[in-house]
Amino acid sequence: MKQVNEKKKWTPRRARRLASSILGHGFLTVLSIVWLFPIAWLIMQSFRGEPGAFTKYFIPKTWTLDNYIRLFTETHLFNFPRWFMNTLIVAIFSCLITTILTLLTSYAFSRLRFKARKPMMNVILILGLFPGFMSMIAIYHILKSVGLDQSLVALVLVYSSGAMMGYYIAKGFFDTIPKSIDEAALIDGATKNQVFWHIIMPMSKPIVVYTILTSFIAPWVDFIFVSVIMKDNYNMYTVALGLYQMLTRENIQQYFTEFCAGAVLIAIPITLLFIKMQKYYVGGVTAGGAKG
């Protein structure tokens, strides 16, 4: 009876709940505005008709698609379509190699028991403690000594070479699959190779998807290794470094709005992919991510 009364009557408790709900929603709205403000600005700038890097006003006075069109037609200095193709090629190949190698490594560390297992995991842990690009100059010289510098193959190699180091998340996932399943298969005469491809893989769809997506995204957002490997060969750049190049002091006045257009084009698919895979991401970081 009391509850029914509460719903109908305007009690102080109900008023307080309503107030806190309004306050909560209001606060979230303000935060959302703060968080989306720069992104809204990016999208508006990409449609801005007036030239120059900075304007004295926030909302563009003329709206145009020119920035997007110029991005694909004016290719003499900054060849965006070429960069896009470069990145796509690198992303596809490094994604293929990385996914297979990461999953195999994780499977080995999770399921197989061999003498070198613990030492190898320790070595990977130690390697991970060095700053990532500390050895970038050495990598460049190694690639150069075999004649691979300034080539897309070099990028594919560099991005896939980290495959083994990123085994943590997939291993965390494999660890949760009961061992009795593969033991049953082994007793039935399956080899470990068959167990991996026919039993573990079909059960690990989420982690396969996650590994594919993360390794596919990596080349789109890295600009450090590209700049070291490609030097000033603009035609071999990937989109991240190319767009970065548009904002240097010499170029920013002319290319700022084009940068925004390019950034929007790259950010949309990556954002969609990320939103799609966020649950795997969380699972990975909290479950297997931190364990050795």
Binding site: L31, S32, W35, L36, P38, I39, W41, L42, W220, V221, F223, A240, L243, Y244, L247, F259, C260, A263, I266, A267, I270, T271, L273, F274, I275, Q278
Partner: peptide, 17 residues
């Protein structure tokens, strides 16, 4: 989702901006 969008946008875009 609103808040996730900001981490989903590549850092070289959002931070340069």
């Amino acid at each position: 989702t609103i808040f996730v969008i900001t981490i989903a946008v590549p850092q070289f875009v959002s931070l340069l901006l």
